[in-house]
């Protein structure tokens, strides 16, 4: 009796230790960002060979110096603004294209719609790496070099397939009966979509919005290819590429920028991840 309970206890401890290790691996870069963002320079820039100076803690009082620098003397806020407006326009375009398309694939197009849906999803797998060179050519044709409109034009190429697929999954999970009932109750298919399907799919639309926005935020390749003027950059490009003075990295401000940008996204992701997986697998496995 005794030893068995002991074994169980030990198992439990091991379980927690393993979980702790995983979490530590996932989180420690962010912890390091946090420390860096608030450490005074004399605490921060101590060579790694000095074993008496423990870098994992504050050895000097924390400072807001780096944050101030980030907001006052860099273009960080401009980049945030750029990202937000580009993101909003892209989200709008995405929803206008993907929501009707997702519904059409889920309900109106039958067998060939299913194939087409898979086709649309596969286009999401065509990576920016393959497309940025031809795009640079097309953007040059259109005279959009160094313009944020180039990004607005290009970002829907990955948000639309992705969100179409996501919406298709969501719409499929709405019982057919309900839509047919509404048609019998006196509405046309189109009105049914407006009055019944959209209100029921609103959480799906919200999920699509969030993920379209975060996909925009994630992009590095296209921004790097099309935008060279620092004030026109997005956060994802500006912070790693332009938050440098000559050869000097302002690590404190840099890490502050990374942290401040990442945490809100992570929070929102976390709120929507279940719906996201549900939509993704509903599309893949059929509801």
């Amino acid at each position: 009796m005794r030893p068995r309970r002991l074994v169980r206890y030990a198992k439990r401890v091991v379980l927690y230790l393993v979980a702790l290790a995983f979490t530590a691996f996932a989180v420690f870069p962010f912890y390091w960002m946090l420390l860096t963002a608030f450490k005074a320079n004399r605490d921060l820039y101590v060579g790694g060979t000095v074993l008496t100076h423990v870098p994992w803690i504050f050895n000097a009082p924390p400072t807001l110096e780096h944050i101030e620098l980030l907001f006052r003397q860099t273009l960080y806020l401009t980049w945030v603004r750029n990202t937000i407006w580009i993101g909003l326009v892209v989200v709008a375009i995405t929803l206008v294209l993907a929501v009707p398309a997702g519904y059409a694939l889920a309900r109106l197009t039958g067998r060939w719609g299913e194939r087409l849906g898979i086709g649309v999803f596969l286009t999401y797998l065509v990576p920016p790496t393959l497309l940025f060179l031809p795009f640079s050519r097309m953007i040059a044709w259109l005279g959009l070099q160094n313009s944020q409109w180039a990004l607005v034009l290009v970002y829907p190429t990955f948000t639309v397939p992705f969100c179409t697929w996501l919406m298709m999954g969501f719409f499929r999970s709405i019982p057919r009966d309900i839509e047919e009932q509404a048609m019998i109750d006196g509405y046309s298919r189109f009105t049914v979509i407006r009055k019944v399907v959209l209100p029921l799919g609103i959480s799906g639309v919200l999920t699509a919005t969030i993920f379209a926005f975060t996909l925009v935020l994630q992009d590095f390749v296209y921004a790097l290819t099309f935008i060279s003027a620092v004030p026109r950059m997005t956060v994802s490009l500006g912070v790693p590429v332009a938050l440098v003075r000559g050869d000097v990295f302002y690590w404190g401000s840099l890490m502050a920028a990374c942290l401040i940008t990442s945490i809100p996204i992570a929070v929102v992701y976390n709120l929507f991840i279940d719906r996201f997986i549900q939509g993704l697998t509903a599309g893949a496995v059929k509801g």
């Binding site: 996932a26 940008t261 996204i265 976390n270």
Partner: peptide
């Protein structure tokens, strides 16, 4: 779970720059 999702949710370029600092040639933690 929230903590585990951080790496995936963070913009990859920002995460990469964070790792650059972690692997820094002078100050690597």
């Amino acid at each position: 779970r929230f903590l585990l999702l951080l790496p995936w949710a963070a913009p990859v370029a920002l995460a990469a720059i964070g790792w650059t600092w972690i692997f820094d040639s002078t100050f690597s933690v």
